[in-house]
Design a binder for these strands. Structure first.
Lengths: 345, 345
DNA sequence: GACGGGTGTGGGAGCGCTCCCACACTGTGG
DNA sequence: CCACAGTGTGGGAGCGCTCCCACACCCGTC
């Protein structure tokens, strides 16, 4: 490598300035793209930077400027095994893509229990993260409120209620569910059951609402017996399916609020001798890798998860740049979903 | 929250010291668990810390101590879409678990192309990361060498050759493959084919070696016609399977070097009217989610991926603590694999 | 009773930046 | 000819720590 200072370490701003024959302040201005530097000086400094291979020291910058150029992605691991969900990697990819254009860093922070999350808020404040991305928070998670108190910008996905105080980015769960059910109706199914997610999760509630609305719109009589509550796990999906089969053996379609639950349901349907899709049509939600690999391949509602990650990040960066926004004027973005039809319907 | 200094910001070490009635140096010693502090003073400082809710400022610490208490996980995204692999989330979980016990931070860094990776090395050095975790590097990746030059501790998984210069943590690919083939032999299969990964990947080569060794140990005559090269993708697996069927239609078992390739092979076997496992037994590698959801569920070689993430992290932390190790004495850890038998054999 | 070697402690220096005030210099208007 | 705003620039101060030297104190020793 070139450009090591004679002191052996990496070059400092001071060295760059000396080499360019300017003051430290001027060198700093050039590096930060500040206005009010003459074209000539700018060129001088830029040459020195290139020659020395100068890269600013983040710690020093953070200390002096009281910002870190880093955001944290807070993940409810290990409690929820969130990582395992294909969801996670897609969010991450989106976040990464949005961040690649900036020189922000991404800190990955795991915090499952409420205690950990409480401690985490202190840490985030002290470690001076410029902003926080929250995924998959429970309705009673203390973290959002703590961040609010500490004045740390945050964006959430998977909002906790219809009137989420934080800025949030979500997919259109309601319309996605409606589209799934309309599709089943269009295939001539009449006894359409649903396996919901945990109903204290707002998104799961939305999916159930969408299911109901679509049936109501088609003039179907509501039948609570066709609804079973799952928990977004494969086992939960299987249990719910078994329940449904017992209560309404005549069902000819199932809308599961996640692919993983659909996978569980499929096992149970099979064991019960029901063929998919001939006897029972099956629709999932998420369009995860599970959907594509299932046999038969699963019709599913695709969420633009990567896009959500990207959008969250952009919203957060804006919020950081603009300074604190009043709770009232925080963006609420809802991204469209899309039905992907495969063999299971 | 309690404990804001009257200056409005977060409490500083100076304030803690003042409150405890000791000097700044002493307070620092207590906070860093240094020896040589009297029991009395220690208690005083600890009380002050608790009262003020003091948390050390990382940027200041990093600047002063020339270390960051952060490590980076470098991921070959977006080029390889590595995130999508179930592998990734498991590694991450392991890393997270190992890090949770320390107060190191995890930086996630995406860098696909060689150019990005070259730039990244500069960044990592300048941003002063204490160490780097490398996953899934190509044989000709410039990053490991750059890190070596810069003197940044690094641990790699998926080593690039038998004599990997970096510290590395891997699973026992050789023995895993041997176990898979022995299992097939035990099931009475005699014409056992294999679909390999790209052979410039060391791990793929090991799996092929394991396959050969197991057959040789059983006294089978080598038959190159039973080996087809894949590329770890589903399509590649399918193509390789088609090749094998054409060359050796009498084959009665296939050992695929990854689950995803096994999934591709399964499609082709099906299309050719071969039943699994009656006509052809199928074994995969990785024991990913794909294996469990395949129909029939896939027998596969499980790698302890989460454990590998944990081990990598521990090795890296040790290396950071101990200072630079001579290339010769760097740990090479090989973790055992395990055959998970399911319906496909 | 002066000396040496522990202990424990205080605080100066300095890490590499950003921020901002002060100081040229330039040109325009009174 | 002086005042004045507007540019561009240099460098002091200070961010909150860690490191380390210096010092005070105590105990045992010659």
């Amino acid at each position: 490598m070139n450009g090591r200072g004679r002191s052996g370490g990496r070059p400092t701003l001071e060295e760059v300035a000396a080499r360019a024959g300017v003051g430290r302040g001027t060198a700093s201005r050039v590096i930060n793209g500040s206005s009010r530097v003459s074209e000539h000086t700018r060129a001088l400094v830029e040459a020195a930077v290139a020659e020395l291979g100068y890269v600013p020291n983040r710690a020093a910058r953070a200390l002096a400027a009281n910002r870190t150029d880093a955001i944290a992605l807070v993940v409810p691991e290990p409690e929820s095994r969130f990582f395992a969900e294909p969801y996670f990697s897609d969010v991450l990819r989106g976040v990464g893509a949005a961040l690649a254009e900036t020189d922000m860093q991404l800190l990955l922070t795991l915090a499952g229990s409420d205690r950990e999350r409480r401690r985490l808020a202190q840490y985030l404040a002290a470690h001076r993260v410029d902003g926080v991305l929250l995924v998959s928070v429970h309705a009673d998670d203390p973290l959002p409120e703590l961040l609010e108190e500490l004045g740390i910008p945050a964006v959430i996905t998977g909002r906790r209620s219809a009137d989420e105080p934080l800025a949030c980015v979500d997919s259109d769960n309601l319309e996605g569910a409606r589209a799934a059910v309309r599709h089943l109706l269009g295939r001539g199914r009449r006894a359409i059951a649903t396996i919901t997610g945990p109903l204290d999760v707002y998104g799961a509630q939305c999916r159930l609402d969408g299911y109901r609305q679509a049936l109501a719109a088609a003039g179907a009589a509501p039948d609570e017996g066709l609804t079973a509550v799952g928990d977004f796990t494969e086992e939960g999906g299987g249990r719910a399916m078994a329940e449904l089969l017992e209560r309404r053996p005549q069902l000819d379609a199932v809308f599961a609020a996640s692919d993983v639950m659909a996978a569980g349901a499929r096992q149970v349907l099979r064991a019960a001798g029901r063929r998919i899709p001939q006897d029972v049509a099956l629709v999932g939600f998420d369009d995860s890798v599970v959907a594509r690999h299932m046999d038969p391949a699963l019709t599913s509602v695709r969420q633009p998860i990567e896009e959500m990650g990207r959008t969250m990040t952009r919203v957060l960066l804006e919020q950081i740049a603009r300074g604190p926004a009043a709770p009232g004027e925080r963006p609420r973005i809802v991204l469209p979903t899309e039905l992907v039809v495969r063999e299971s319907t």
